[in-house]
Design a protein around this nucleic acid. Sequence first.
RNA 1: GCCGGUGUGGCGGAAUAGGCAGACGCACGGGACUUAAAAUCCCGCGAUCCUAACAGAUCGUACCGGUUCGACCCCGGUCACCGGCACCA
Length: 834
Amino acid sequence: MQERYDHKRIEKKWQKIWADEDAFKTFDDFEKEKYYVLEMFPYPSGKLHMGHVRNYAIGDAVARFKKLSGFNVLHPMGFDAFGLPAENAAIKNGIHPAIWTESNIAEMESQLRDLGLSYDWEREVVTCREDYSIWMQWLFIKFFEKGLAYKKDNPVNWCPSCQTVLANEQVVDGHCERCKTPVTKKHLSQWYLKITDYADRLLDNLAKLPGWPEKVKLMQQNWIGKSHGSEVTFTIEGFDKDLVVYTTRPDTLFGTTFMVLAPEHPFIEELIAGTEYEEAARASIAECAHKSELERTSLTKEKTGVFIGKYAINPINDKKVPIFIADYVMIDYGTGAVMGVPAHDQRDFDYATKFGLDIIPVVDTGDPDIDINNLKAATPAEGIMVNSGKYNGRNNKDVIDEITQDLADRGLAKATTNYKLRDWLISRQRYWGCPIPMIYCEDCGWVPEKLENLPIRLPKDVVFTGKGESPLTTSKYFMHTTCPCCGKPATRETDTMDTFLDSSWYHLRYCDPQNVTAPFDSKIVNYWMNVDQYIGGVEHAIMHLMYARFFGMFLYDIGMVDYEEPYQNLLTQGMVIKGYTNADGEYVKAKMSKSLGNVVSPEEIMDKYGADTARLFILFAAPPEKELDWSDEGVEGSYRFLNRVYRLVSEYINSIRTDEAAGEVVIRSDADKSLNYQLNATIKKVSEDAGGRFSFNTAISSIMELVNEMYKYKQSASVNQPLLRDAIEKMLIALNPFAPHITEELWAELGHEDRIYQCSWPQYDESALVLDEVEIIIQINGRLKDKIVVPNGSPKELIEERANHSEKVIEAIAGKTVVKTIVIPGKLVNFVVK
RNA sequence: GCCGGUGUGGCGGAAUAGGCAGACGCACGGGACUUAAAAUCCCGCGAUCCUAACAGAUCGUACCGGUUCGACCCCGGUCACCGGCACCA
């Protein structure tokens, strides 16, 4: 055995052995209990960063632990390989996106192998390859067939300088990500998926996900934004159509002093045509339309708008109120019209103040600091009704339903529900994405491509200018085709799909990755799904995790899978941060980023210390869901520990690699007993920490304690060889999920023919954890005063008796009265004295 | 503005069920080994006071208060920082 811990040699050696032995190949063994652990697959940007390493170190610890614990573990990896950076590289450097992407994938695969992660590489899924995109297109057609995919004209983000459409992700603080020009709106016809049909299920099912962080569930809940309210019908003086508003506060109807329409409201044209207000109104609407994204979302939120010369009649009291147009009202939420109640809504208050409109309080909060007849701001939610006719004097909460009902009886209101969630816009005017398999025919409209013609392939003869429409429009061959329905000449959709579609079902393809007749076989998927443990960054809390849930429900509805929720348990890992000195000379901590210069590359760490050290440090330094504060000294510490483990084995290799040492363990001395206790306590703790709450930091610290104990044990009079060997072996298995290479190496050095990955997780011996004597703490008034040792299982009376004899206790209670004595066997005695 | 989270030594963190606060690691200090250094091994390491020393005392988990024999943990309030959403009626 080499004396020095040579991480490079050992890690290379074992990575080769695992590959040669197909160590992590997974079989669809339906008889065995399965465990599916999944890490969010990466975008192939070029190289792994520490965030990736953390993600996969956590996932691999779980996978290896579950495999050792006897589960049939599915632990796959792949690449979310469509996306904008590849196309930008093409525009900038003239490299085809496919070539750029595949070369990045090759690089990252090699880095993943260097980390020694236990993936079944035969199940690799790469979303840009045809064997995946064919089924992506197939699934899109399913959505279309079920009426869940539709095309609609809608405003999109437009960069006037690049002359192109931008995805929301490409709009940074209202500016174009590339040229920094303020982004405006433009109308384009776009494909949508009807995720809003699933709003209630997406919301209600959150309750069925106890294994998800509360935080993520709340974020999704807020994003869906379900609210209960009423639609109330106002009439417009001298106009034959009714104006419907949505409100969550029908109790404030009597406080309505104006009405506001969104600039896009369909009534506006008729209301202003030919009036003296027409010109001003048109100017205001045009201004809104030309407002940049930046101005619209600006922090000042200065209210603008105009009076249009018309009045609405409030159905509750027949009062006439002026109608305005203002862009603080959104056309796509509620009805695009809002009743202005300045006394009880801050935005309405701001508007009324600016335009000199009446402010009528209708709910008196009873707060003596607020003069309701001279409000300085809108008042909060609860109080007694005033200025509200027959409802006066009652609590406002109690009249909400009644007012709606009273109006409903006259056909002027109805209770409704609204959502913030919008349908999912999936069209991207991009080349490097999955083609949308739809064809437009003058006669038949939008029809899906025939299944036998899938996949639609991305053409090679395209020009990447970064301008105008989708690059697919520049292909000579792509656009023109024939209608699958009637055979007439027709044109293909040239937009591609949002890459979030690809990542909404990849976990299913891993289950059956080589299927050539379907996206997956339901029987196989139903065995492996759902994902028992999903691990990734919290930045995907809303979009990816909501879209994947939506896909899950859709596939359930069309009978392809027998579950609704894809991810049973979710772990959102924290960021990797590192301290640096900022421009002001302060030492601060922030997420690793090139611009701050606080990046540590995984390659550099793996070269210097090896994958085992990198993984061990990452798992040890912080609990997985918290931020990880990178520390170069901390990495040294983890490396030192692995060296300590290596030396422990190498020092004893000759004495414990014998038949005698491999024999039965007999506990002889107190030192033996103590080591055996520590060993079993460690196994118990690691089993619970690694298996239950993923608290790898404490699991590793307990292994460190055990190793410290073994070093102390070496100094005891007579070393019990079988015991030491047993302890070393179990320690190696327990450490294996966190540092797989070194533990396999030492296992082999001990003379084993098998591998740790083939072993079973060690069981702990309860009887070894039962101590002969236990320490009891003695408190006076809850403060520690003394400790005594009593036989394990001593009754209360004996413990109290012994505690009474403690010299320190006698001294402390001298001259005082013991009012009460609390005895908790095995733990403590507390004397309450006065 | 709305919603959520966090606050423990010089640092990362531990205390899983209300019962010894600070496990484990880092940094630092001392010692052993060495011609020397590195590596390694051993010891110490919250603050203040006291003692020649051993020992001991008091305070201490952001701040103020409460419940309890006993609170980092539960309850009420305050402050700070971080994250998400945001003109959603």
